[in-house]
């Protein structure tokens, strides 16, 4: 009975709701796009006086450094996310399955970066990395990006682990599966939604870091936000908008590519409901 109502609702409201959602999400991007192309768009004019490609021709010019920064941003986000997965998987497993002394403390430390202001922790990281010679390197920036991203990955994975009934794994083991086979064929497919959620957040948060990248990268690691911020703050909103559109496109594509790869790989095994 309940299923029927849900289906009915979906049928009647699905299209308008979808349209509304797309509209509210697309509207800011459309405004940015128009802003990046407009010449003399002043209140109370509804439309710009003319269109110009000034902002885009600067952003897409070879000297502006945009291309290299997009590549570098994506590279950093990808490596950060892979490290997060490798670190987060056992961490989340332990936190979801075991009770041990000091568990609350460990959880506190893992989630601390969400609560502690990034500026405070970054200042400390900066001084330590300076001593270690890790500033001004991509490696240093990648390590620094782990702090704000790891908590989200761990959180997403913990929830996935909590919904995975250990008896499923025990069954596989009694049927003769090895530890690795059990993980690969039983646990991992179940974790895919959590991995997608955690990795999406990890990618997005890594891509949007300005302060951490600036302080740890010392200006030598130029990601897209580093190019974008001076324009937004300095008042050239057309170029700022063009960069913002580019940034959204980059982030959207990265998310799409990631979920495509994961789903494509595990798609056949995704046979469960949450």
């Amino acid at each position: 009975m309940e299923k029927l109502t849900m289906k009915g609702l979906r049928h009647y409201l699905g299209f308008p709701m979808g349209l509304l959602l797309t509209f509210t999400m697309a509207l800011p991007i459309i405004a940015l796009l128009v802003n990046s192309l407009s010449f003399g768009w002043r209140w109370p004019d509804l439309f710009p006086q003319a269109l110009t490609n000034r902002a885009w021709s600067y952003v897409l010019s070879t000297t502006s450094g945009t291309y290299a920064s997009v590549g570098l941003s994506l590279e950093i986000a990808l490596v950060v996310t892979i490290i997060n997965l490798v670190l987060g998987m056992p961490g989340a497993y332990a936190l979801a399955r075991y009770n041990f002394r000091g568990k609350l403390l460990v959880e506190g430390i893992v989630y601390a970066p969400i609560i502690v202001p990034a500026f405070a922790s970054t200042m400390g990281i900066q001084m330590t990395f300076l001593r270690l010679g890790l500033t001004e390197s991509v490696l240093g920036v990648i390590l620094a990006h782990l702090a704000p991203t790891l908590p989200y990955m761990v959180r997403a994975l913990i929830i996935s682990f909590q919904t995975l009934n250990p008896s499923l794994e025990d069954q596989a083991r009694t049927l003769g599966a090895g530890w690795w086979q059990c993980f690969w064929q039983i646990s991992l497919p179940h974790l895919v939604p959590g991995i997608v959620a955690g990795a999406s957040l990890s990618i997005l948060i890594s891509l949007s870091q300005y302060l951490i990248t600036f302080l740890i990268g010392g200006g030598q690691v130029v990601t897209l936000p580093l190019l974008m911020f001076p324009f937004i703050n300095g008042g050239d909103l057309a170029i700022g908008s063009a960069y913002a559109v580019l940034f959204s496109g980059m982030a959207g594509l990265a998310l799409y590519a990631m979920s495509w790869v994961l789903k494509h790989y595990y798609g056949k095994r995704l046979d469960f409901h949450i």
Partner: peptide, 27 residues
């Protein structure tokens, strides 16, 4: 050219480098 949002940030960077006695800076 290294784009900076506020050059004061770069002064702070140099100050931090001075504190840890970093002899080979990138600026």
């Amino acid at each position: 050219r290294v784009p900076v949002n506020d050059i004061n940030d770069t002064i702070n960077k140099l100050l931090a480098e001075k504190q840890v006695n970093k002899k080979e800076g990138s600026v």
